[in-house]
Design a protein around this nucleic acid. Structure first.
Lengths: 161, 161
DNA sequence: TCCAATTAGTATGCAACACATACTATTCGT
DNA sequence: ACGAATAGTATGTGTTGCATACTAATTGGA
């Protein structure tokens, strides 16, 4: 017996059922579950691309520019659901690292067209391999039809007004 | 006609199908959809409790302490999937606002037992009403069985190793 | 055609989190 | 009894989100 004099096992002072999870109430909330699931996947993502030094957002921006070369910052912001200021910060960082370039649009001189540099394309190619494995790890928890429902459910949640 | 000389409608320089969403590739990723859904629900949560000045995490900590009076910081951190340093910052903030108190545990003097103050209990009571409406807005998108599957799916994602 | 409203980018500042590291006090395990 | 582990704390860095404000450019309507 290692405990000195008390039989208490944890830090619940009085008569609480310690077999009951501490978060029992919170588990009943969709928002809580969504946050925990997202946090887990986010952590795993960061770990998966740790050697590339990319965050989810940064990777998403590279991905978006690669699919839409010349996209303007504001279009990227809208597409990814971010505001202009946040997008600026992310694009600045990627710009400093030489992963993309800004080029003033000739059609609308307010706009900066975004393009990946060769370095950016190379990094993205590496990221794609890591992300594929990362995704597989999570999507493999489900059948194809379950996944289809899950995707649609998440889209619905995003679009709630 | 307001456009000067070009027929271009957006910022896609050459022959891209503009009916195709810019994020088409990204939409194929579970992590991306999860992040967007979580961001939407997070924003809605913040708006729902804006007058109470609470974040999701802060509300979760209050909730957890209310359900488990005397819980130690480290237990709260574990339960909510946060590290000690982050938990410290959150508890500090709630402490400064007079919503909770720390009390040194007599059983283990390393531990600080956390308790809600009357002010904390009152605030939490208000928050509960707001959160109930907030949750309803999102859960009402689904049937009971769909919701059951969704909850379980999110739990699976959280527990992926 | 001219002017007000809007838009894109930028700059600055603040708050919240996550995480790393390091240190002290305390308790645990052998 | 003593080394290992634990809880709390302090400090610092990086990322993100958002508000505000400003400039330059474009648009739309009178």
């Amino acid at each position: 017996m290692s405990r000195s004099s008390k039989a208490k096992v944890d830090d619940l002072p009085e008569g609480l059922d310690e077999s009951m999870p501490l978060t029992e109430e919170l588990e009943g909330f969709l928002g809580y579950r969504l946050r925990r699931a997202n946090a887990a996947m986010h952590r795993h993502f960061i770990a998966a691309v740790a050697d590339l030094g990319l965050t989810q957002k940064q990777a998403a921006v590279l991905w978006l520019i690669n699919s839409n070369p010349g996209i303007a910052q504001v279009s990227a912001a809208d597409a990814l659901g971010m505001d202009r200021a946040t997008t600026m910060a992310i694009v600045d960082r990627l710009d400093e690292r030489g992963l993309l370039v800004r080029r003033q649009s000739s059609a609308d001189r307010r706009r900066q067209e975004l393009y990946l540099t060769p370095a950016g394309q190379k990094l993205l190619r590496k990221a794609k391999a890591r992300v594929a494995k990362h995704e597989e790890r999570f999507t493999s928890q489900f059948t194809a039809s379950e996944l289809e429902f899950l995707f649609e459910a998440l889209r619905k949640l995003r679009d709630v007004t």
